[in-house]
Amino acid sequence: MTIVDIRPHLREWAMPHVLCAGCAHGIVGRAFLVATDRAGIDPDRMVVVAGIGCSSRLVGYLDFCTLHATHGRAPAFATGVKLARPELTVAVFSGDGDGLAIGGNHLIHAARRNIDLTVVLFNNEIYGMTGGQVAPTTQRGAIASTTPRGNTEPAFDSVALMIGAGASFVARASASEPFTLERIFTEALTHRGFAFVEVLSDCPTYFGRYNRLGDGPEMLAWLTRQDSRVAEPLAAKRVVDHLPIPEAPPGLDLGVLHREERPVFTGRRSG
Protein backbone atom coordinates (compact mmCIF):
# COMPACT_ATOMS: atom_id res chain seq x y z
CA MET A 1 0.00 0.00 0.00
CA THR A 2 1.46 3.30 -0.99
CA ILE A 3 2.38 5.84 1.64
CA VAL A 4 0.23 8.93 1.43
CA ASP A 5 1.79 12.29 2.19
CA ILE A 6 -1.02 14.26 3.77
CA ARG A 7 0.67 17.65 3.96
CA PRO A 8 -0.62 18.75 0.52
CA HIS A 9 -4.13 18.13 1.86
CA LEU A 10 -3.61 20.52 4.78
CA ARG A 11 -4.12 24.26 4.86
CA GLU A 12 -0.56 24.79 5.99
CA TRP A 13 -1.08 28.53 6.44
CA ALA A 14 -3.61 27.78 9.18
CA MET A 15 -1.38 25.36 11.06
CA PRO A 16 -0.59 24.58 13.83
CA HIS A 17 -4.11 23.66 14.80
CA VAL A 18 -5.84 24.82 17.96
CA LEU A 19 -6.31 21.40 19.51
CA CYS A 20 -4.57 20.67 22.80
CA ALA A 21 -1.35 18.74 23.14
CA GLY A 22 -2.14 15.04 23.19
CA CYS A 23 -5.67 15.39 21.78
CA ALA A 24 -6.13 12.42 19.45
CA HIS A 25 -8.49 14.24 17.08
CA GLY A 26 -5.54 15.07 14.84
CA ILE A 27 -4.72 11.37 14.45
CA VAL A 28 -8.27 10.84 13.22
CA GLY A 29 -8.04 13.81 10.87
CA ARG A 30 -4.83 12.46 9.42
CA ALA A 31 -6.34 9.00 8.86
CA PHE A 32 -9.30 10.67 7.13
CA LEU A 33 -6.97 12.52 4.77
CA VAL A 34 -5.19 9.28 3.92
CA ALA A 35 -8.56 7.62 3.29
CA THR A 36 -9.73 10.36 0.90
CA ASP A 37 -6.51 9.87 -1.03
CA ARG A 38 -6.88 6.08 -1.06
CA ALA A 39 -10.52 6.37 -2.14
CA GLY A 40 -9.32 8.45 -5.09
CA ILE A 41 -11.45 11.45 -4.21
CA ASP A 42 -10.63 14.71 -5.97
CA PRO A 43 -9.94 17.20 -3.14
CA ASP A 44 -11.83 19.87 -5.08
CA ARG A 45 -14.93 17.66 -5.06
CA MET A 46 -14.71 16.72 -1.41
CA VAL A 47 -16.90 18.63 1.03
CA VAL A 48 -16.47 18.37 4.76
CA VAL A 49 -19.16 19.93 6.92
CA ALA A 50 -18.75 20.51 10.63
CA GLY A 51 -20.79 21.82 13.49
CA ILE A 52 -19.41 23.27 16.68
CA GLY A 53 -16.82 21.77 18.97
CA CYS A 54 -13.22 20.70 19.09
CA SER A 55 -13.71 18.01 16.46
CA SER A 56 -15.45 20.45 14.20
CA ARG A 57 -12.54 22.88 14.40
CA LEU A 58 -10.40 20.26 12.71
CA VAL A 59 -12.25 20.83 9.45
CA GLY A 60 -10.65 24.25 9.14
CA TYR A 61 -7.27 22.67 8.50
CA LEU A 62 -8.35 20.31 5.72
CA ASP A 63 -7.79 21.66 2.23
CA PHE A 64 -11.16 20.56 0.88
CA CYS A 65 -14.37 22.50 0.36
CA THR A 66 -15.29 22.99 3.99
CA LEU A 67 -18.35 24.34 5.68
CA HIS A 68 -18.44 25.31 9.33
CA ALA A 69 -22.10 25.12 10.27
CA THR A 70 -24.21 25.73 13.35
CA HIS A 71 -24.15 23.60 16.46
CA GLY A 72 -25.47 20.10 15.77
CA ARG A 73 -26.82 21.03 12.35
CA ALA A 74 -23.92 19.78 10.23
CA PRO A 75 -25.97 16.81 8.89
CA ALA A 76 -28.69 19.24 7.79
CA PHE A 77 -26.22 21.47 5.95
CA ALA A 78 -24.57 18.38 4.47
CA THR A 79 -27.96 17.11 3.29
CA GLY A 80 -28.47 20.37 1.46
CA VAL A 81 -25.05 20.21 -0.17
CA LYS A 82 -25.54 16.62 -1.27
CA LEU A 83 -29.03 17.18 -2.69
CA ALA A 84 -27.95 20.27 -4.59
CA ARG A 85 -24.63 18.86 -5.83
CA PRO A 86 -24.95 15.05 -5.82
CA GLU A 87 -21.65 14.65 -7.68
CA LEU A 88 -19.70 15.84 -4.61
CA THR A 89 -18.48 13.54 -1.86
CA VAL A 90 -19.84 14.92 1.39
CA ALA A 91 -18.61 14.12 4.88
CA VAL A 92 -19.56 15.46 8.30
CA PHE A 93 -17.21 15.87 11.25
CA SER A 94 -19.09 15.99 14.49
CA GLY A 95 -18.37 15.53 18.16
CA ASP A 96 -20.34 13.49 20.65
CA GLY A 97 -21.97 16.57 22.13
CA ASP A 98 -22.56 18.14 18.74
CA GLY A 99 -23.91 15.03 17.05
CA LEU A 100 -25.69 13.18 19.83
CA ALA A 101 -26.94 15.93 22.12
CA ILE A 102 -27.89 19.14 20.34
CA GLY A 103 -27.77 17.56 16.89
CA GLY A 104 -29.31 14.21 17.72
CA ASN A 105 -32.39 14.78 15.62
CA HIS A 106 -30.48 15.85 12.54
CA LEU A 107 -28.25 12.82 12.79
CA ILE A 108 -31.02 10.23 13.12
CA HIS A 109 -33.08 11.69 10.29
CA ALA A 110 -30.12 11.81 7.93
CA ALA A 111 -29.56 8.15 8.77
CA ARG A 112 -33.25 7.32 8.30
CA ARG A 113 -33.21 8.82 4.81
CA ASN A 114 -29.96 7.01 3.96
CA ILE A 115 -28.47 10.07 2.33
CA ASP A 116 -25.09 9.42 0.74
CA LEU A 117 -23.01 11.06 3.49
CA THR A 118 -20.11 9.93 5.63
CA VAL A 119 -20.46 11.03 9.24
CA VAL A 120 -17.43 10.87 11.51
CA LEU A 121 -18.40 11.22 15.16
CA PHE A 122 -15.46 11.98 17.44
CA ASN A 123 -16.34 10.56 20.84
CA ASN A 124 -14.15 11.90 23.63
CA GLU A 125 -16.91 11.48 26.22
CA ILE A 126 -16.95 15.14 27.19
CA TYR A 127 -17.58 18.71 26.04
CA GLY A 128 -13.98 19.77 25.58
CA MET A 129 -14.36 23.20 24.01
CA THR A 130 -16.73 24.64 26.57
CA GLY A 131 -15.02 23.49 29.74
CA GLY A 132 -15.45 19.79 30.35
CA GLN A 133 -19.18 19.42 30.92
CA VAL A 134 -20.80 15.98 31.00
CA ALA A 135 -21.84 14.64 27.59
CA PRO A 136 -24.45 12.05 26.61
CA THR A 137 -21.56 9.67 25.99
CA THR A 138 -19.80 10.15 29.33
CA GLN A 139 -19.40 6.79 31.05
CA ARG A 140 -21.41 6.25 34.21
CA GLY A 141 -19.26 7.19 37.17
CA ALA A 142 -16.91 9.44 35.21
CA ILE A 143 -16.15 12.90 36.50
CA ALA A 144 -16.90 16.03 34.48
CA SER A 145 -17.06 19.68 35.52
CA THR A 146 -20.85 19.37 35.89
CA THR A 147 -20.68 15.94 37.54
CA PRO A 148 -17.96 16.47 40.13
CA ARG A 149 -19.02 13.41 42.12
CA GLY A 150 -19.40 11.16 39.11
CA ASN A 151 -21.91 10.88 36.30
CA THR A 152 -25.07 9.00 37.32
CA GLU A 153 -26.56 8.67 33.84
CA PRO A 154 -26.02 5.81 31.41
CA ALA A 155 -24.15 6.68 28.24
CA PHE A 156 -25.43 6.69 24.67
CA ASP A 157 -24.43 3.78 22.45
CA SER A 158 -24.23 5.78 19.22
CA VAL A 159 -23.61 2.72 17.08
CA ALA A 160 -26.80 0.99 18.27
CA LEU A 161 -28.64 4.27 17.78
CA MET A 162 -27.47 4.66 14.19
CA ILE A 163 -28.23 1.05 13.26
CA GLY A 164 -31.70 1.58 14.69
CA ALA A 165 -32.14 4.83 12.80
CA GLY A 166 -31.33 3.14 9.50
CA ALA A 167 -27.72 3.99 8.68
CA SER A 168 -26.53 1.55 6.03
CA PHE A 169 -22.86 1.51 7.11
CA VAL A 170 -22.00 1.69 10.79
CA ALA A 171 -18.54 1.29 12.25
CA ARG A 172 -16.64 2.09 15.38
CA ALA A 173 -12.91 2.60 15.55
CA SER A 174 -10.33 3.95 17.94
CA ALA A 175 -7.93 6.82 17.42
CA SER A 176 -5.25 4.60 18.89
CA GLU A 177 -5.41 2.37 15.82
CA PRO A 178 -4.64 4.73 12.93
CA PHE A 179 -4.17 2.06 10.27
CA THR A 180 -7.58 0.53 11.05
CA LEU A 181 -9.04 4.01 10.94
CA GLU A 182 -7.59 4.57 7.47
CA ARG A 183 -9.20 1.35 6.23
CA ILE A 184 -12.59 2.00 7.81
CA PHE A 185 -12.71 5.58 6.53
CA THR A 186 -11.85 4.36 3.04
CA GLU A 187 -14.74 1.86 3.19
CA ALA A 188 -17.10 4.47 4.63
CA LEU A 189 -16.22 7.03 1.95
CA THR A 190 -16.78 4.53 -0.84
CA HIS A 191 -20.01 3.18 0.67
CA ARG A 192 -23.13 4.32 -1.18
CA GLY A 193 -25.58 5.50 1.44
CA PHE A 194 -25.35 6.87 4.95
CA ALA A 195 -22.06 5.84 6.52
CA PHE A 196 -21.48 6.45 10.20
CA VAL A 197 -18.14 6.00 11.93
CA GLU A 198 -17.85 6.57 15.66
CA VAL A 199 -14.23 7.20 16.56
CA LEU A 200 -13.15 6.78 20.16
CA SER A 201 -10.94 9.78 20.81
CA ASP A 202 -9.64 11.43 23.93
CA CYS A 203 -9.61 14.70 25.83
CA PRO A 204 -6.53 14.78 28.06
CA THR A 205 -7.29 18.35 29.07
CA TYR A 206 -10.66 17.63 30.67
CA PHE A 207 -11.68 13.98 30.68
CA GLY A 208 -8.15 12.74 31.27
CA ARG A 209 -7.37 15.30 33.94
CA TYR A 210 -10.65 14.95 35.85
CA ASN A 211 -10.55 11.17 35.76
CA ARG A 212 -6.80 10.87 36.31
CA LEU A 213 -6.24 9.02 33.06
CA GLY A 214 -3.00 10.79 32.21
CA ASP A 215 -1.90 12.76 29.16
CA GLY A 216 -1.95 11.93 25.47
CA PRO A 217 0.23 8.80 25.53
CA GLU A 218 -1.55 7.28 28.53
CA MET A 219 -4.95 8.08 27.07
CA LEU A 220 -4.06 6.36 23.80
CA ALA A 221 -3.30 3.23 25.84
CA TRP A 222 -6.59 3.74 27.69
CA LEU A 223 -8.43 3.94 24.36
CA THR A 224 -6.95 0.62 23.34
CA ARG A 225 -8.37 -0.93 26.48
CA GLN A 226 -11.91 0.17 25.54
CA ASP A 227 -11.86 -2.43 22.78
CA SER A 228 -13.98 -5.42 23.83
CA ARG A 229 -11.41 -7.69 22.19
CA VAL A 230 -8.93 -6.35 24.74
CA ALA A 231 -11.06 -5.41 27.75
CA GLU A 232 -13.11 -8.57 28.09
CA PRO A 233 -10.36 -11.15 27.62
CA LEU A 234 -8.26 -9.25 30.16
CA ALA A 235 -11.13 -9.23 32.65
CA ALA A 236 -11.78 -12.92 32.09
CA LYS A 237 -8.19 -13.74 32.88
CA ARG A 238 -8.00 -14.78 36.49
CA VAL A 239 -4.58 -14.32 37.91
CA VAL A 240 -5.40 -15.35 41.47
CA ASP A 241 -8.18 -17.89 41.83
CA HIS A 242 -9.49 -17.11 45.28
CA LEU A 243 -9.93 -13.36 44.87
CA PRO A 244 -13.23 -12.06 43.58
CA ILE A 245 -12.79 -10.14 40.35
CA PRO A 246 -14.59 -6.89 39.68
CA GLU A 247 -17.24 -6.77 37.02
CA ALA A 248 -15.87 -6.99 33.49
CA PRO A 249 -15.21 -3.55 32.03
CA PRO A 250 -17.82 -2.66 29.44
CA GLY A 251 -15.77 -3.26 26.31
CA LEU A 252 -16.94 -1.66 23.08
CA ASP A 253 -17.15 -3.61 19.84
CA LEU A 254 -14.88 -2.14 17.21
CA GLY A 255 -14.85 -2.58 13.47
CA VAL A 256 -17.50 -2.39 10.77
CA LEU A 257 -20.60 -3.45 12.71
CA HIS A 258 -23.35 -3.05 10.15
CA ARG A 259 -23.46 -2.86 6.39
CA GLU A 260 -26.40 -3.11 4.02
CA GLU A 261 -27.52 -1.95 0.61
CA ARG A 262 -30.59 0.26 0.85
CA PRO A 263 -32.18 2.79 -1.50
CA VAL A 264 -30.30 6.05 -1.24
CA PHE A 265 -32.22 9.29 -0.74
CA THR A 266 -31.57 11.75 -3.54
CA GLY A 267 -34.54 14.07 -3.11
CA ARG A 268 -35.89 13.01 -6.49
CA ARG A 269 -38.93 10.90 -7.28
CA SER A 270 -37.93 7.59 -8.71
CA GLY A 271 -39.19 6.65 -12.17
Binding site: M15, P16, H17, A21, H25, G29, R30, A31, L220
Partner: peptide, 8 residues
Protein backbone atom coordinates in the same frame (compact mmCIF):
# COMPACT_ATOMS: atom_id res chain seq x y z
CA UNK B 1 3.91 9.83 11.82
CA UNK B 2 0.48 8.21 11.97
CA UNK B 3 0.00 8.78 15.69
CA UNK B 4 1.08 12.42 15.68
CA UNK B 5 -2.10 14.42 16.34
CA UNK B 6 -0.44 17.60 15.13
CA UNK B 7 0.60 16.43 11.63
CA UNK B 8 4.10 17.44 12.73
Amino acid sequence: EVLCPDFA
